[in-house]
């Protein structure tokens, strides 16, 4: 039972990180129909910011907001430089553009920082663990769960109460009509990228605090998972992205923990098999987006 609870905490922590990443993908996709595979590189940028802050002797407390700022800024620049020129192109064009951005950034990291993995100083408080009700729980796991909840609540408040948040939901549903209301396309899209950058930054801090290292390809695997999570939840649906992220986290952790040893090498195929099964039953995902019909102008 203890093991089960322990793994459930782990599942929430991992699922939360996937949820934040999937949410970042979904926010951008819902507004402009772009699946941004360079989302992972936003994580990597936040990771390197943490690393350089450590090298410069900046305390972790200040490094975290700097890392978030870096990934947000990078996301906004990415949109301005790479995605705005192809904004009205087909989904495929935008997808390929995002791959190009990802690869260019990876090569830049490899050439100007290092091909190898770099250590990141994580404060002892975070790499430690605490005892709750007889369970030893890593502080980083708790941090992940709390950060995820805080981010989800903040985003929900923003989208449901703030004028600009409501405008983003309107634009996600029908971009052309939102523009007719006087909602500026550039503002909404830049806002979506800033939010996705912020979410990627939080996810990166959680990811790095588990591993205490950063490398040029760091963002690839988690974002691939987040992409699966976003599809699982229903591409373009924000609630779906969160649900998909948590479900994928649970599938991965429980399989790793409870699958018999002789089946462990089939863990990933089994996990993805479950994903496929869910999609066979619900082809549009767990909580599909209300409107994929809205034309993007």
């Amino acid at each position: 039972m203890d093991l089960f609870l322990q793994q459930t905490v782990n599942a929430f922590a991992l699922g939360g990180t996937y949820a934040l990443l999937a949410l970042g993908l979904a926010v951008v996709f819902s507004i402009m129909g772009l699946i941004n595979f360079a989302h992972g590189e936003l994580m990597t940028i936040a990771g390197y910011t943490l690393m350089y802050c450590g090298l410069a002797g900046i305390s972790f407390v200040f490094a975290v907001p700097l890392a978030l700022l870096a990934s947000m800024l990078a996301a906004v620049l990415m949109e301005r430089i790479a995605f705005r020129p192809v904004r009205n192109s087909s989904g495929a064009t935008m997808l390929v553009t995002s791959f190009a951005v990802a690869m260019i950034l990876q090569v830049l990291f490899q050439n100007f920082i290092s091909v190898r993995s770099q250590a990141v100083n994580i404060p002892d408080v975070i790499s430690g663990s605490i005892l709750i009700g007889g369970m030893v729980i890593g502080t980083n796991k708790l941090l992940a769960i709390v950060s995820t909840i805080v981010m989800l609540v903040l985003l929900d408040r923003f989208l449901s109460k703030q004028k600009y948040g409501i405008a983003m939901r309107a634009a996600a549903e029908d971009f052309a009509v939102a523009r007719l209301m006087g909602i500026r396309a550039n503002t909404v899209i830049a806002g979506a990228f800033a939010i996705s950058g912020l979410l990627a930054g939080v996810a990166a801090i959680l990811w790095v605090s588990q591993r205490a290292s950063v490398d040029p390809l760091m963002g690839f695997t988690p974002v691939l998972k987040a992409f699966i999570a976003a599809i699982l939840g229903g591409l373009g649906s924000l609630r779906g992205a969160v649900a998909g992220g948590f479900l994928l986290g649970f599938i991965e952790i429980y399989l790793a923990a409870f699958l018999p040893a002789e089946l462990q090498e089939f863990r990933d195929p089994i996990g993805l098999g479950i994903v496929v099964l869910v999609l066979v039953m619900r082809p549009n995902g767990l909580l599909p987006a209300a409107s994929l019909k809205a034309e993007k102008v």
Partner: peptide, 24 residues
């Protein structure tokens, strides 16, 4: 013109098929 500039000038369109924001 960019559509977002129109309400400020005093012109709006109620589009074909209504296109209300159904999730709002």
């Amino acid at each position: 013109i960019r559509p977002e500039m129109l309400p400020g000038l005093g012109m709006t369109l109620s589009p074909e098929g209504r296109r209300v924001f159904g999730t709002l």
